[in-house]
Write a protein that binds this DNA or RNA. Structure first.
Lengths: 136, 136
DNA sequence: GTGGATACTTACAGAAATGTAGGTACTTCC
DNA sequence: GGAAGTACCTACATTTCTGTAAGTATCCAC
């Protein structure tokens, strides 16, 4: 499937529900998966099942608040499966659902591609000179 | 390549530059491509070359300000090629660079997958009941 | 000469995302 | 008994994102 074909099927099925439409139901799902932390959570969960604090440790910089919120969104969307054991130091496990794994694979593929192609993109001189970052 | 393999190569090459690291240079690139408007711009550009106001019309809801900003980021990142003709009503064309097409293909694949799998994800009852949206 | 089109930019304001700090209830370890 | 670990939630503050409205310079059609 060429890039053009992919775009074609995306744009031709206009009535099916299109990302380009502002009120398309796929928008929030896409937003959650591509959000700052959503992406990283999906990528980590692709490698296995983890407890809350495991995830926190594996994703440097994430706060508990954001991790909890992100997991809840992804769970509500059907990407993530939350399994709580009724024991008393709480024990909860997070993993990907079947569709979650497929979605995460796409996310990881994109992230992977960017890492592998960093040098083809922003020339070395420009890298690290992010105007947004520079202002701050 | 299985999902696990993808994640593996992502997590094993820790030193190469990893998305999980907060200061990884790939982070801003990923952020631009997965941003609210970045995603849509990439998807539309996958279908051809367009002028500024063409893009504006094809992406419902985007403001001129956001389109300009998004295009500038994607251009600086090396995803988008901007061609300005020195004529006077200004004429500028936007298209994807070679790497931009590859990246856009990944983005479109993800968006496509979500649209195709909407029913497998959020159950119909839950769809349209986005807690975030509901509050507003 | 008035209105519309082109491709933007800038200032300002409001909305949304994110971080910080604290609290909960219970357990095990020293 | 005090500290640490588990999996969170809540209020508040800050940062970042996004939208609105206006302005720029030039051209063409009416």
């Amino acid at each position: 499937m060429t890039p053009a074909t992919t775009a074609q099927s995306l744009l031709e099925g206009w009535q099916r529900g299109n990302v380009l439409a502002a009120d398309c139901p796929s928008r929030p799902l896409l937003a959650h998966v591509t959000s700052r932390w959503g992406t990283l959570v999906m990528i980590v969960l692709l490698t296995g099942t983890f407890r809350f604090s495991d995830l926190r440790r594996r994703i440097p910089g994430i706060s508990e608040r954001m991790l909890a919120q992100t997991l809840q969104q992804l769970e509500a969307d059907g990407f993530v499966l939350r399994t709580a054991f009724q024991v008393v130091p709480p024990h909860v496990e997070y993993s990907l659902t079947a569709p979650g794994q497929e979605a995460a694979a796409h996310v990881a593929a994109l992230a992977n591609w960017i890492e592998d192609n960093l040098t083809r993109l922003k020339p070395p001189a420009a890298r690290g000179t992010d105007p947004e970052t520079a202002k701050a």
